[in-house]
């Protein structure tokens, strides 16, 4: 309500007037983003290796070969899932004939999809984070509802060393989500359980 708006602004100005007119309002601090980076996490390895280590630390898995990814899926008994149509041709051969890939996500049969494969719009090394942008993710539900999510990092997707770098490149996508490991909770007696609403297994496959 426009009424509420003007009331709120008037009240804020009134509250701050004594501070601001006395020139006592706190200044914006000067700082470097370097201090926000965890150097031990960044490590000294190649960036993909460091990313894989950090993803593993939050119980995720990083793969460089489609076959390894396929083996993981089979081991976990997940063979039918959703796949971003733009990725199907590249993945079909490596995955082999054991998998059924649906290029459409049908809300009505949510439980049919035991995995979802969508593109990653980038990764962050320092935190083992997978970046999903709305324009790069073919279907929000496809990347979230199935038990296993495979985020595919293609050649053109950026690899950011630090969170600060990734923040500076959020761009104009209306929705950017950083995914750091599988969905989890510790609400019941502090016990860690994975796979609450989102995936119980989070994978990242690097195509190169």
């Amino acid at each position: 309500m426009s009424d509420d708006r003007s009331r709120i602004f008037a009240a804020i100005r009134e509250a701050l007037q004594p501070l601001q007119s006395a020139g006592k309002a706190s200044p914006y601090p000067d700082y470097e983003v370097g201090q926000l980076t965890s150097l031990p996490r960044l490590g000294a390895e190649e960036s993909w290796q460091a990313f894989a280590r950090n993803l593993a630390a939050v119980n995720g898995h990083a793969y460089e070969k489609i076959e390894e990814c396929a083996a993981f899926l089979q081991e976990h008994g997940v063979t039918e899932g959703y796949c971003d149509p733009e990725l199907i041709d590249r993945l079909r051969e490596g995955l082999g004939s054991a998998f059924t890939l649906h290029p459409e996500f049908d809300r009505a049969s949510l439980e049919r999809y035991s995995f979802g494969i969508t593109k990653a719009s980038g990764i962050i090394v320092e935190s083992g984070t997978i970046i999903l942008k709305d324009r790069g993710t073919s279907n929000r539900l496809g990347a979230l509802a199935p038990w296993v999510h495979v985020a595919v990092l293609t050649e053109e997707a950026p690899i950011f060393s630090t969170m600060s770098e990734a923040l500076a490149e959020l761009g104009d996508d209306p929705n950017v989500i950083w995914v750091t490991g599988p969905s989890k909770t510790a609400d019941v007696e502090g016990i860690l359980i994975e796979g609450v609403h989102g995936p119980g297994q989070q994978l990242c496959l690097h195509l190169s």
Binding site: V58, D134, R135, P174, N175, V176, I177, G181
Partner: peptide, 14 residues
């Protein structure tokens, strides 16, 4: 280090 899902929203879906 980071909460699992950190979502930056600047509008309705694309």
């Amino acid at each position: 280090q980071l909460t699992v899902y950190t979502e930056f929203i600047s509008g309705p879906r694309s």
